[in-house]
Design a protein around this nucleic acid. Structure first.
Length: 321
DNA sequence: AATAGCCCCAACCGCGCTTCT
DNA sequence: GAGAAGCGCGGTTGGGGCTAT
């Protein structure tokens, strides 16, 4: 679909909003409410597209917005939530009243990333930097001398430094849990058990990274109200979730430790790996050679364990980690 | 004082998903 | 069921302010 149709029309203003425009939009929404965003600019007398109006309202004009810099508590919470949710800024923002996803995203990119690096933590994986470096070195040592690797380098122009990294345990695998939404409250114990079964193979073993020294995990995440199913779930079993997070989620297992739980889809694919895979697909198209035995990606973390899906209404999908 | 470089953040863009016709 | 319209999200961009030279 791409660009919003209203943006294609002529006479649409872009760029920074003037105080007059802000005033028009604010007074219109205060008086009439939002309704349909595409009709807001016309009704408010603005030469903006609805999308731009929506963004301005959400990120700047909304009366419930909190102004000013982030507190230490907010900062800690963002880091903790990012370790769990990744770049799901809207979900992170839903746990910080008065903060917008855009604001948090900017704060993360401009400030928190640096802070984490200074603490020796990789901001994208939340793993210690030296551990990541060691894994990359190991991978390069391991795969830099195969025929396939040489072929990959010669075909793509990649250097040995740009070789695909051996996939490690995915920070944010998709966990699909089957339950019935109609009996949601009763299923909490069931969900909790499934989470535990899912996570058990990942924790309490040697070689885990203890996060407690690097991250201050707040005692309660403060799961708030939300209209989405996932957030309702957070509300329902927040305390159990907290236990899971405190005990297991902030530890990391190496790929070799991961066994494949039935309901876990581990879908983390490094960009270089993706590049490799597209190259590999191309190779497969051109020759009948079977690359499935290629040693680089025998690792479980590159594998999808899709649980058989039942009827849509009875599926409970949770994006977890 | 001039200017180059950096950083922050508001706003835009493109895409996927849902709802409507 | 198909296509259009609308919404929301995450990634990216670019302009303005600040700092160093």
């Amino acid at each position: 679909m791409g660009r919003h149709s209203c943006c294609l029309k002529q006479k649409i203003r872009k760029g920074l909003w003037s105080p007059e425009e802000d005033e028009k939009l604010y007074s219109h929404i205060i008086r009439y409410g939002v309704g349909c965003w595409s009709s807001v600019p016309k009704l408010a007398g603005l030469q903006r597209c609805g999308k731009s109006c929506r963004l301005r309202w959400i990120n700047y004009l909304r009366p419930d917005l909190k102004r000013g810099s982030f507190s230490q508590n907010e900062e800690d919470l963002i880091i903790s939530l990012h370790a769990i949710l990744g770049n799901r800024w809207s979900q992170i923002a839903s746990q910080l009243p008065g903060r917008t996803d855009n604001e948090i995203k900017n704060f993360w990119n401009s400030c928190l990333k640096k802070k984490l690096r200074q603490r020796g933590i990789d901001p994208s994986s939340h793993k210690p930097l030296n551990e990541i470096k060691a894994e990359e070195d190991e991978t390069r040592m391991y795969c830099s001398n195969t025929d396939e690797t040489r072929m990959y380098c010669s075909n793509t122009g990649a250097t040995s430094e740009e070789l695909p990294i051996k996939p490690v345990f995915d920070t944010f695998p998709l966990v699909e849990i089957q339950t019935c939404l109609d009996s949601f409250a009763e299923d909490n114990v069931n969900i909790y058990n499934q989470i535990h079964q899912t996570l058990e193979p990942l924790g309490q073993k040697e070689g885990l990274c203890d996060y407690s020294s690097a991250l201050h995990v707040t005692e309660k995440f403060g799961y708030g109200e939300s209209s989405s199913n996932s957030c309702n779930w957070n509300c329902s079993i927040g305390s159990e979730m907290n236990n899971v997070l405190g005990i297991e989620a902030l530890n990391w297992a190496s790929a070799e430790m991961v066994e494949a739980p039935t309901h876990v889809q581990i879908n983390g694919v490094e960009s270089r790996e993706r590049k490799y895979r597209s190259w590999q697909e191309k190779q497969d198209m051109e020759s009948s050679e079977d690359y499935s035995t290629y040693p680089l990606f025998h690792d479980l973390s590159g594998t999808c364990f899709n649980a058989p899906r039942g009827a849509l209404a009875s599926d409970f999908n949770m994006d977890f980690f």
